[in-house]
Design a protein around this nucleic acid. Structure first.
Lengths: 197, 197
DNA sequence: TGAAAAAATGAGCAAACTCTCATATTTTGT
DNA sequence: ACAAAATATGAGAGTTTGCTCATTTTTTCA
């Protein structure tokens, strides 16, 4: 762990570089040399802060998880879910989109499949960071719905949101907008029917 | 291209090995040496049939595309779509699941994101192999619906089906069953509302 | 049957990658 | 100002991987 300001800046620069590269080239093509070069530092410095390549991504995921938790705590509530579940869905979709845009590399990390077993635990936790609290909110808002159904619905909602936004990210602005709208429509209809209005 | 029976068997064995490895370790960890070893042949033979690693996957994708087209031609019809769009959705979901189970590596190839630019064209074509014909069937079954809405709906249906089945594939049998059922529910509701009964 | 064509083999080259370490530079505390 | 601690550097060691090629084995066919 860095103690001087100088090294703390490098630490942050390395993470920023990793995030940007992740966004641009994806996980498979991410290399430690490229990260160091983009962070304007030497490969040696990278390995002074991180024991290996996975650790860099793991630290990024840790930050991403915090952002997600902050968003859920700030924007989602039992009252909102109970009042209008469609509006609840809208907030979830818009919130995830905002996070994706603000944090380079987020969707790359969030979506990658079996990337040579890398940070797999962390990625799964990132998903549970969303599914679990959302399910708990629904539990409080709709106590009569069976727990199993609630969990399944939130799993569907989370997975669907994740992938459609990931796909949308690769398209032009116009396509992104309509995909988001269709997604809200679909999830709203689904939750209305499976959980309640 | 192989001319003797012996080499044609090797050609097929290499493709089978690649498909199994793709299923087991994913694209990122796929190596030509591993493919050759699993096919019980030498690395030299692999490069006698395929100019490079991408070509092996490309050939696999070519076969997958044919399977998808065959399924659509055999199982989907304008009549079915016009009669009951929910049943139409059920057939699509079950059909894709059947293909996924029958063809090792299918979901691995179908779902991978930005795998170092590999066979990207082919992967996109695979998606259009589904979206385009489905949209055409809907066009015939529901001629009053605007073309743009139809295309968007089918894109959403295809993407959602793809990812949820990909996720389901990593879970136990019980989870797969309920995810498929929830998926049918959601897509059925969505299409009923956006296209018609 | 024998020579030419086709197919098979695997050692190893070249390139790319992760990560180490001896050395140099900067910061800190006194 | 000076020594010790912290930080920075990049050449290169050690692997892995895609792919080649000289050589051997099998098949074809007159």
């Amino acid at each position: 762990m860095p103690r001087q300001k100088r090294s703390q800046k490098r630490f942050a620069a390395i993470l920023d570089a990793a995030a940007e590269l992740l966004e641009q080239v994806g996980y498979a093509a991410l290399t430690t040399n490229a990260i160091a070069a983009r962070a304007d530092t030497s490969i040696g410095s990278l390995y002074q802060f991180f024991p290996n390549k996975q650790a860099v991504v793991a630290e990024l995921v840790r930050e991403f998880r915090q952002e997600v938790q902050a968003f859920i705590g700030a924007s989602l509530s039992v009252e909102l879910a109970a009042r209008d579940i469609r509006e609840f869905v809208d907030v979830v979709v818009d919130g995830m989109e905002e996070i994706r845009v603000r944090l380079p590399g987020f969707s790359a990390v969030f979506s990658f499949r079996r990337s040579a077993g890398v940070a797999d635990d962390q990625r799964i936790q990132l998903e549970y960071d969303i599914i679990r609290p959302l399910s708990e909110i629904l539990a409080a808002a709709y106590p009569d719905v069976a727990a199993a159904r609630r969990d399944r619905c939130m799993r569907i909602v989370a997975e669907t949101t994740k992938v459609l936004m990931g796909r949308a990210a690769m398209e032009d602005e116009e396509t992104q907008v309509w995909m988001r709208e269709e997604l809200k429509q679909m999830l709203g209809l689904y939750l209305s029917q499976r959980i309640g209005t």
